[in-house]
């Protein structure tokens, strides 16, 4: 079967874009934990977190990629597909993230590739986002892969 021609803005590949910043508040950490049912005291009990040597509540590591959704990403301008699903996720943490941290993100389009299987053609779009805290420390890198199909 011939691969369909998939067009997108190739000039985006590998180019870094500032994606804005966000502050993770204590209320957001508590609300996030409530929604997912997370019960670890390091996320929920500030006194306990301080007692164990942390300056504030720890934020669950996945809050960074979650908040990154609202940041500005350039348009891929893909001429394909209607349905989009999150296909894969990678995350590397380098430094703890605390409630009250202001995180600045930069994003780049890491890869776009096509796979054709029994159910038709799928296009995968992979974004990589680097998160830096207010002290200039790189706290995490997230790589998310989205599948687009007809």
């Amino acid at each position: 079967m011939a691969q369909p021609t998939v067009e997108f803005d190739r000039s985006l590949l590998g180019k870094d874009f500032p994606a804005g910043s966000f502050t993770i508040t204590k209320e957001q950490v508590l609300a996030y934990c409530r929604i997912i049912g997370e019960t670890n005291p390091l996320y929920l009990d500030e006194q306990e977190a301080r007692r164990r040597g942390h300056p504030a509540l720890l934020a669950p590591p996945l809050m960074c990629p979650l908040f990154a959704r609202d940041l500005d990403r350039p348009q891929v301008k893909l001429n394909f597909g209607r349905m989009r699903m999150h296909a894969g996720q990678a995350l590397e943490s380098f430094h703890p993230i605390y409630a009250g941290d202001t995180i600045t993100a930069s994003v780049h389009l890491a890869d776009v590739y096509t796979k054709t299987g029994r159910s038709g053609t799928m296009v995968f779009i992979v974004w990589e986002t680097v998160f830096v805290n207010q002290q200039g420390e790189r706290v995490a890198v997230s790589r998310d892969s989205h599948m687009v199909r007809e």
């Binding site: 997912i36 049912g37 997370e38 019960t39 670890n40 390091l42 996320y43 164990r52 942390h54 720890l58 934020a59 669950p60 590591p61 996945l62 699903m85 999150h86 296909a87 894969g88 996720q89 990678a90 995350l91 590397e92 943490s93 380098f94 430094h95 703890p96 993230i97």
Partner: peptide, 27 residues
Amino acid sequence: TLAFVSELLMQAFGRAWAESGKLRVRF
């Protein structure tokens, strides 16, 4: 769904998960 995996890893490894954890998954 992935948040539940993070919860499991936090249970197993405590602060080390939040400070130095890495993961790679497929949905």
